[in-house]
Nucleic acid binder design. Structure first.
Lengths: 344, 344
DNA sequence: TTTAGCACTCTCATATCGAGAGTGCTAATT
DNA sequence: AATTAGCACTCTCGATATGAGAGTGCTAAA
């Protein structure tokens, strides 16, 4: 793969930027007129031919302007776009909204989705923070009715799981409280493995309970936290590439079906370190459902302790600069908030 | 408004059923051929003219078949459709799935949305059960970091609220546990008003905490429970009426925007008794966003204690029979489950 | 009251056409 | 060697026309 001349880089960037704005194929004449290049349209045409041969541009039909290919977008994002940041005033406004939301994780998530959707003009996706390698913090047992007991399990990071258990026989609230107290003092702050090692010294009731608690802490295979927050879906469908319903439906399935989302996230952003922003352009040959879409994803939280995912989804012709800077900023903000809450 | 002859009722029902199936305007000839009416197409045409004049049918253009009007659908749903039930085997299969899900409310909700979406072929909507007139059951305070305290509040019905508080000064876990114990024994099982009456006898810390707990119990204005579950959205967009993206977008906004949904539910199904199924056809002149859609809604739960909402959204040309029977069945099932869990 | 017959209307798919946009190539220019 | 003017060529897109087909409403007869 030959490297591009400076002029080729310039022209490629102009074509892509223009196309992202207008959704119209970009012609040689249009370029020289609007971006006062001091070369003729014929010269530009020659460069366009070169860029087309290199696979960065293509023509929808013989006599239309050029449109970026997926490779073109990838080159643009990696080499041409440079680093963009949201304006400071915007950042402050957003941060202020978060701090006003107090310590309500649910509100943070909704706010994050809303901010992502509005700033990036794409569909937003946020998963709740989830403790990896959860440590036991507190357990509460509440008798509700007969043999039914509500177990509330608090993990490090303030994550709360609740589960209804049905015991073999009715047990009094006093007995439950005693069991909870015992388990709380015994396992305070311990992680999964440590707890598993000590279960021998418990009575039958306590063993049953701690077994369920451990299962809950492992959250097997469930990568998404409990809830997935979405926003801006109806808004992003206004993009012309979703005029064809089938395209829109495929995109929606990604956001709607947990299994798809789980597969997608587990094989992309979960393999990345916190702080890095990952850009998926047009399915990358792996995800059929993403064929007509791009996603910008990032993890937030404290690596190895609690993490979640934020991201946006839009057409391949997406304003990557805005999206990436927004996703990066929101992920950073959430990281601060979550880490702060998690500190102990 | 004149009453319809039996033959008119039959023809109206046939037109609507056929149109719901095929999404094609129904002509007089088509009717006599496919439903072996023993009259001629000319006679049917005369009846169609009558039904059109009464406002139950209309023609997309001069020489097309008839299509139901919104009034036509309403008449059909109220007078012609009769009472339909899901087949027993289907009911059993579904109920079995719910019982297999144990006592996990989150799984119930997801399952309910999935069942609604698949059975009714429309987009499903389920709100988590929410305690009306909540009673205090249990409170837990967990010191996390400095002045930050996690409050876990368990209400009657097993509903759990969590909130992070920031105290004026650091307080030890022991002190917090003592306060929680005190409040738990003092207010066990009491409702909002009773608690408010007794706050005088508490110390400053306890007063602060119980004030926040009361605020939480009131959940001001928030009609939707915490989470709204949706399913079948991408599926319902396959209906031909959503081929126009703008129609699809408007429908999606209803499901996406909490404020819209809240307004909609508060003014419809929340004014109905549990058990009743409400059908909104084409916005009913009130909701612009629903102009091209219909919804079938029902409340579930224990009236006055815990309730939630289930429903489906589809094009006006919706299989009302299937939708209504599915919504009724799922609402009933969830009522049983929630009431069962709530019993104490 | 029902029905056969028929003219009428409107949609929809198809074909034709010209304008316009943008190209690629060639040959001349710098 | 790189750039540019010139130009023929290709393809899309919107406008216009055309005809088949579907379904109607009306009239008059049964």
């Amino acid at each position: 793969m030959k490297t591009l001349s400076e002029r080729q880089k310039l022209i490629l960037a102009l074509v892509i930027r223009d196309y992202i704005d207008t959704a119209q194929p970009v012609g040689s004449q249009h370029l020289v007129e609007h971006y006062n290049l001091d070369v003729s349209s014929a010269t530009v045409r020659n460069e366009l031919v070169a860029l087309t041969n290199m696979g960065y541009l293509r023509q929808p039909h013989t006599s239309a302007g050029r449109v970026p290919t997926e490779d073109g977008y990838r080159y643009f994002v990696r080499q041409l776009m440079g680093h963009t940041e949201l304006p400071d005033t915007t950042k402050h406004t957003i941060a202020h909204q978060f701090y006003q939301a107090g310590h309500d994780v649910d509100r943070w998530m909704r706010l994050a989705a809303s901010v992502l959707a509005h700033q990036s003009q794409a569909a937003a996706l946020v998963t709740a923070p989830r403790a990896e390698q959860a440590r036991f913090k507190h357990l509460e047992l509440i008798a509700t009715h007969g043999r039914q007991v509500l177990m509330v399990l608090v993990l490090s990071g303030g994550e709360v799981r609740q589960q209804m258990l049905v015991l073999a026989e009715p047990v009094s609230q006093d007995r439950l409280s005693a069991a909870a107290n015992h388990l709380n003092t015994a396992f305070q702050g311990m992680d999964l493995n440590s707890i598993s090692a000590y279960t021998g010294q418990l009575d039958a009731l306590e063993q049953d309970i701690i077994k369920l608690a451990i299962e809950d802490m492992q959250h097997p295979g469930d990568i998404l936290g409990g809830e997935v927050y979405r926003d801006g879906i109806s808004q992003v469908l206004a993009e012309p590439e979703f005029a064809e319903v089938d395209v829109a439906r495929k995109a929606l399935r990604i956001l709607e079906e947990r299994s798809l989302l789980e597969d997608l996230l587990s094989r992309t952003v979960l393999t990345t370190s916190v702080g890095g922003v990952q850009v998926l352009i047009g399915g990358e040959g792996t995800w059929e459902e993403l064929r007509d879409c791009s996603m910008v994803l990032a993890r937030y939280g404290a690596p190895g302790i609690v993490t979640g995912t934020v991201g946006v989804l839009g057409p391949i012709r997406m304003a990557y600069g805005r999206s990436i800077s927004t996703v990066r900023f929101v992920a950073g903000l959430l990281s601060d908030l979550v880490v702060d809450m998690h500190a102990e």
